[in-house]
Simulated scan of single mutants.
Amino acid sequence: MKVIYSSDQQEHAPRAFISSGRLLDSPERPERAERFLEAVRAAGHDIEAPGNFGRREIAAVHGVDYLEFLETAHERWSALPDASPEVIANVHPGRHMAHRPDHVVGQAGWHMADTACPIGAGTWKAARSAAHCALTGMRFLLENETPVYALCRPPGHHAFADMAGGFCFLNNAAIAAQQAVAAGRTVAILDIDVHHGNGTQGIFYGRRDVMFVSVHAHPGDFYPFFSGYADERGRGEGEGYNLNLPLARGAGDQDYLAAVEKGLAAIRRYGADCVVVSLGLDAQENDPLGILSVTTEGFRRAGRLIGRAATPALIVQEGGYLCPELGANLAAFLSGYLDR
Rank of each mutant, 00 (worst) to 15 (best):
G184S: 11
P14S: 04
A266H: 09
T311E: 10
F226R: 15
V275F: 09
G106I: 00
D162L: 06
D282L: 08
E28S: 00
G109E: 02
G290F: 01
A328L: 05
R29L: 12
P14N: 04
H12K: 00
K262M: 13
A161R: 15
G238W: 09
G137I: 04
A79R: 12
A248T: 11
E31Q: 08
V3R: 06
P312N: 06
M163D: 01
V294F: 01
E11S: 15
G234F: 04
G271A: 10
V316E: 03
I189P: 03
N198R: 08
G122A: 01
F69N: 06
H74K: 10
C168D: 01
P288S: 05
R300T: 05
T115D: 12
A113R: 11
E68W: 09
G109Y: 05
P154I: 00
A134C: 10
E145M: 13
W110T: 04
D8Y: 10
A313Q: 11
Q317M: 04
S78P: 08
T146S: 15
V148H: 02
V194M: 04
C152E: 00
Q201L: 13
L334V: 03
A173D: 02
A164S: 12
V213Y: 10
I18D: 07
P324G: 10
A127G: 05
L151T: 02
L67T: 07
L281V: 00
K2W: 09
G165W: 06
D255C: 11
G240D: 06
I175M: 01
D82L: 10
N244Q: 12
L305H: 12
A309K: 06
F167R: 03
A16I: 14
M112S: 09
A272Y: 05
H157T: 03
A98Y: 15
A332Y: 03
V276A: 07
L23Q: 10
D162A: 14
Y337P: 08
R29D: 06
I88G: 04
H99S: 15
F167A: 01
C168L: 03
R22K: 13
Y205S: 13
